Amino acid sequence: MPVHFPRVAVLLAAYNGMQWIEEQLASILAQTDVDVTVYINIDPSTDGTEAWCAASASRHSNVVVLPPAGRFGGASRNFFWLLREVDFTDFDFVAFADQDDLWHPDKLSRGIDAINVKGVDAYSSNVTAFWPDGRACLLSKAQPQVTWDFLFEAAGPGCTYVFTQALAKALKASMFDHWHALQAVSLHDWFCYAFARSHGYRWFIDPSPSMNYRQHERNQVGANAGLSSLVARYKTIHDGWWFHQVQLITHLVGQAEGTFVRGWIQLGRLQLVRLSWSAWKCRRRLRDKAFFFCICWATALIGTRTK
């Protein structure tokens, strides 16, 4: 009898990706014990990405390039469009893919096994970051989930995410309801994690890496490692971007009226001080809890540039 593998829709956002996309697509098509269809949406590019992807789709029946839809200007809007436009009816699972990584051969099957065995609705994992000079390091995102982490951070890189069909359809429905406001969300992986957790979906973060996470100068969001990364993240907070995203995502996932959130959502000085004392249940990693506490106090004292 023929073996029926789980059917997975892989959503790949591309933009000027000719340096890496061929290697990445090969790693996706080589996934074991799954039936994969790759849907590619391309932000208008200047390096031949569109032509190469069209040629790949002509050679592979399980590679589909979405029709041109104008400029998206960032990965988040590109992924939201993929979630909106791809029909998941015939698929068991949905996964995200960046154009420049390298997937382990069992990335999807391992994620699906975890979803089935643990009885959860979504999967993400640690990754191994690697640089052109040969450096590599494990990026750990698998600390225990806490009560409110989903309002303040993602579950790790979105390119590790795997969803059940039911969760993917719920995400799609919510996106249609909030499509205009959603365009201001900068990080699709943060929003998807927040939506899932706030609506009672269960999520597993795997401590084992499932892919090699390429680092280069054009990463929209790179590895959160080292002092320079910490400084860069402080700048986004001082500029007002991070707290604005917290407010926006909190409203979009329907959490703004809860007792805990009402205590700080306006982000006034006293509210930020109050929020700082909840740092232990707002971030997963110990270092990030401490950073969160300090940022709340610093912002309360000196504000942000947008205020």
Score class of each variant (00 low, 15 high):
R202K: 15
T160E: 06
K172C: 02
A194G: 09
H178Y: 13
S210I: 09
S208G: 15
A170F: 02
F152W: 08
A166R: 04
S210K: 02
F163E: 01
A194V: 05
H199V: 06
N212T: 07
L171A: 06
I205V: 15
M211Y: 06
Q165W: 07
Q165D: 13
H188N: 13
A154Q: 07
F152N: 01
M175I: 06
H178N: 13
A166I: 03
R197F: 10
D177C: 07
H216S: 12
Q165I: 03
I205Q: 05
H188T: 09
S198R: 04
C192D: 12
H188D: 15
Y213K: 00
P157N: 12
L151V: 05
A196V: 08
L167V: 01
W179G: 02
V162H: 01
D177N: 07
Q183R: 12
S210T: 14
Q165L: 11
Y193T: 12
F150S: 07
W148A: 03
D189N: 09
A173C: 08
H188W: 10
Y161A: 11
H199Q: 07
S198Y: 10
F191A: 05
R214H: 14
T164V: 04
Y193H: 14
A196T: 11
W190S: 03
H216M: 08
V185G: 02
A184G: 09
F152T: 01
R202P: 05
M211R: 01
Y193Q: 05
M211I: 05
A181R: 12
R197N: 09
D206P: 05
T164G: 08
R202Y: 10
A173W: 06
H180N: 11
A170R: 02
L167Q: 01
P207A: 15
